[in-house]
């Protein structure tokens, strides 16, 4: 799956080991072979320790973010998601492998921490600041690496038309052709995307929150994801060709307006002309 961030941590301890090796080779000429062998064994040992599974190496020196995230996790999340992200049956799902992206999506949109069990946790003002979300995400990522939302620009304006095609094929069936959301089964619903930021949309596609299917990078490439975001965000701000979108909900509100408002006006106009006679 996604590469753990620990690969960077691998390289840093590796470099001083190499430099140490050259220094020791100079020394070796002046020392006995036995000492050289001992030092070589030691160097291999250090190298092995550096290359061994890095979760352990990180756990040895967790960053300040991870520690702060752990505090937050143990306050707000541990009841339902368990001590080691494994989840608690009947309360909350396992978070293993969900990664930073899932934490970012769930916490910044206020869905987590949830206030109660229900068909679906509701979107609400977030409880935690961006900083705290980052810490919480770092903690979850450190315990069990998973997908991450890339930084930088998440738009691909050049691919907007392609993004529109992908949106209509993959997203519109649940989120409505204009991103207004819609009903699912048993009281669940696909949320409207009015307030969704670039990062939130990207994280949702990457992780498949709740009942949304997962759209991994092999299925919809990062460039295509950016194109979808460009299309959707442009769609949200662009004007309605009819003059008024009527909630962009399609033929039902349009029919109601025509039959109630339009025909009503015509009836009143006819009555007014009659009354003036």
């Amino acid at each position: 799956m996604t590469k753990p961030t620990a690969s960077e941590a691998d390289e840093k301890p590796g470099q001083p080991a190499q430099q140490a090796g050259t220094a020791w080779s100079r020394l070796r000429r002046r020392t006995s072979g036995a000492l050289a062998l001992g030092l070589a064994l030691g160097a291999v040992g250090i190298g092995y320790a550096a290359l061994s599974p890095t979760g352990r190496a990180n756990a040895g020196a967790p960053s300040a973010d991870v520690l702060a995230g752990q505090q937050l996790y143990q306050t707000a999340c541990i009841t339902c998601h368990g001590r080691n992200l494994q989840g608690v049956p009947g309360r909350g799902p396992s978070l293993l492998g969900t990664g930073e992206a899932a934490v970012y999506f769930q916490v910044t949109t206020g869905r987590m921490p949830a206030t109660m069990q229900g068909a679906q946790s509701a979107e609400k003002p977030p409880r935690y600041t961006e900083e705290q979300v980052r810490q919480l995400a770092a903690y979850v990522q450190a315990l069990s690496p998973g997908p991450q939302v890339p930084g930088g620009n998440l738009r691909n304006d050049a691919g907007m038309a392609k993004g529109g095609e992908l949106f209509r094929l993959n997203c519109a069936q649940c989120h409505n052709f204009a991103g207004k959301g819609g009903a699912l089964s048993s009281g669940k619903h696909a949320p409207g995307l009015e307030n969704a930021t670039d990062e939130v949309i990207y994280a949702a596609m990457l992780t498949g929150p709740e009942n949304m299917p997962v759209f991994g990078d092999n299925q919809i490439s990062p460039e295509e994801k950016r194109a979808i975001i460009s299309y959707l965000q442009t769609l949200k701000t662009s004007k309605d060709p009819g003059g008024h979108g009527l909630g962009r909900l399609g033929p039902v509100p349009e029919g109601i307006v025509i039959w109630v408002v339009g025909v009503g006006l015509v009836v009143f106009a006819a009555m007014w002309i009659g009354a003036k006679s």
């Binding site: 498949g208 759209f215 092999n218």
Partner: peptide
């Protein structure tokens, strides 16, 4: 896919769906 590219088994993550 819609753009005529074929799919490999590793293209979808568990919980994924593609037309």
């Amino acid at each position: 896919r819609l753009d005529n590219t074929p799919l490999r088994p590793e293209d979808l993550r568990p919980g994924g769906m593609e037309t």
